[in-house]
């Protein structure tokens, strides 16, 4: 197993092949903020809050630490001015969608992001994919999925599946950084299987 040496925030870090920058940083005690990352799930790279500056061969660029694999001799900066500014704008954009998300507000305070910078377009969901991936990868129920694309992309619960799979799980509610997963579920339940809530025991 090849060992990879890299530098993060001026510190020499040993990592093994296949690790992401986020994992390498974590093992060295360097904290990188994340939103869509979950250690049990396949990295997804949706929120970009984990953006770091990467220097290779004298050039720097911004990459998502939670998906970018470590390479020999790479130089990573997680706290540069550029990183700070970038995260600030990303948070401001996310806040336009989910202005009341506690997770977002906490990060916004840290990075001085202005929640009112962009006109509000509250979709409430920031499409981090945690609910979708958790349901598919861990629970293997596929009760919630993405629908449509571009600005119309959203998560939807599939009523036929949700009415059977969700009542005793609801684990995605906790994961969701904005509470939208719960809202979407409750709406689906109210519209598609309102009796489920009152029924005490499942049939199967």
């Amino acid at each position: 197993m090849s060992e990879i040496l890299l530098q993060i925030d001026g510190k020499e870090v040993k990592a093994s092949e296949g690790m992401t920058i986020y994992e390498a940083a974590k093992s060295a005690g360097i904290f990188i903020p994340t939103l869509c990352h979950h250690e049990k799930l396949t990295p997804y790279g949706a929120c970009r809050v984990c953006t770091v500056e990467l220097e290779t061969a004298g050039r720097t660029r911004l990459v998502a630490a939670c998906v970018y694999p470590v390479e020999r001799n790479m130089v990573v900066r997680t706290r540069s001015v550029k990183v700070g500014k970038t995260r600030k704008v990303i948070l401001e954009e996310l806040l336009a969608h989910a202005p009341d998300s506690e997770d977002l507000r906490r990060l916004a305070r840290e990075y001085g992001a202005d929640a009112d910078r962009f006109e509000k377009e509250p979709a409430f969901c920031i499409l981090c994919g945690l609910c979708v991936r958790y349901c598919a990868e861990i629970k293997q129920k596929y009760a919630v999925g993405f629908s449509d694309r571009g600005p119309r992309r959203e998560i939807i619960f599939i009523p036929e599946v949700a009415s059977k799979a969700c009542w005793d799980c609801k684990e995605c509610f906790e994961l969701c950084p904005t509470s939208y997963a719960q809202a979407a579920y409750v709406l689906t339940e109210a519209l598609a299987f309102p009796d489920r809530a009152s029924a005490s025991a499942p049939e199967e």
């Binding site: 349901c135 596929y142 999925g145 993405f146 449509d148 694309r149 939807i156 036929e160 599946v161």
Partner: peptide, 21 residues
């Protein structure tokens, strides 16, 4: 869509994503 999902063993949420995409 349901029939296809059943026969191919593809979750409905996946088909939904594709047909709306």
């Amino acid at each position: 869509i349901e029939r296809v999902g059943e026969r191919l063993e593809v979750p409905l949420s996946r088909i939904q994503h594709i047909v709306t995409f």
